[in-house]
Design a protein around this nucleic acid. Sequence first.
DNA 1: AACACCCACAACCGCAGCAGA
DNA 2: CTCTGCTGCGGTTGTGGGTGT
Length: 282
Amino acid sequence: MGRSPCCDKVGVKKGPWTPEEDLMLVSYIQQHGPGNWKAAPTQTGLMRCSKSCRLRWTNYLRPGIKRGNFTEQEEKLIVHLQALLGNRWAAIASYLPKRTDNDIKNHWNTHLKKKLRTAPDHLEANLNKDAFSIHQPVSKGQWEKKLQTDINVAKQALGEALSLKEPTSPSGFSSPVPSTTSYASSTENISRLLGEWMKNPPKKRTLGTEPATVADSNDHNNKTTVLAEKLNSLLSDIESSASMVSESEHLPLLETWLFDESLGQGNAALVEMPLDYTAELF
DNA sequence: AACACCCACAACCGCAGCAGA
DNA sequence: CTCTGCTGCGGTTGTGGGTGT
């Protein structure tokens, strides 16, 4: 052990969230907007710490989140960006607007790392080299050269990744073909959650101190149906306002800068850098 | 059928950075 | 300038489902 919990307070609930808790959080956010996380537990009556609320929202409830089924393009982009940026998952996630950093991090740790490990040696060497190019100290004289190389690598990565896009996509990313396991919105996420909840009500929540498990099955079904309806309407509201936000906001400065740069220089740099190792992975 | 092991993913934790007092 | 509190990030852990024996 050794670690002390972030929220030492007695009575702070941990572990998986129940639909009821989701509903409470979502309705709070609908009223106050995401941000004031410190107030969230007290305002909602949730027995959760503020961190837990924020995490639940950003990783699960937030509108527009796509879960599961990473497309080949996405995987390729992640590998590219990981080589460029290292384990800066938040930065990487900013290039995949529908994915959360947590999701990307998990996918990297469980799938992509493995993929790379089983890849031929030279590919891995290439990857390591690229990752180190940013993080390893370099002598002063080489610094400028290194920087230029990294810029070129970045250009290549972005150029390659974005060339996969559909031409109409403003953010530069195609919307992958919908599949049964990808979720375009939190409405769908929660609907799914509730659906599963109704089909397979948990026998016992080991960590939960709370309800949801005590009702008999009829009550339970009725309750969750009502919850589902409430959540759907709440989330629809939130999503409609969220969709007003321009997609271009997802485009980080780096990308803009890189493309400005490449416009100035032509595409030679994009072609020169050998960052095609990921192609062999897919 | 029961058990053990593995894997994927949700959630937790500590730390760093930032803003406001 | 310093202190304090809040938020965001990245690493890590815990849990539940799936698979193999």
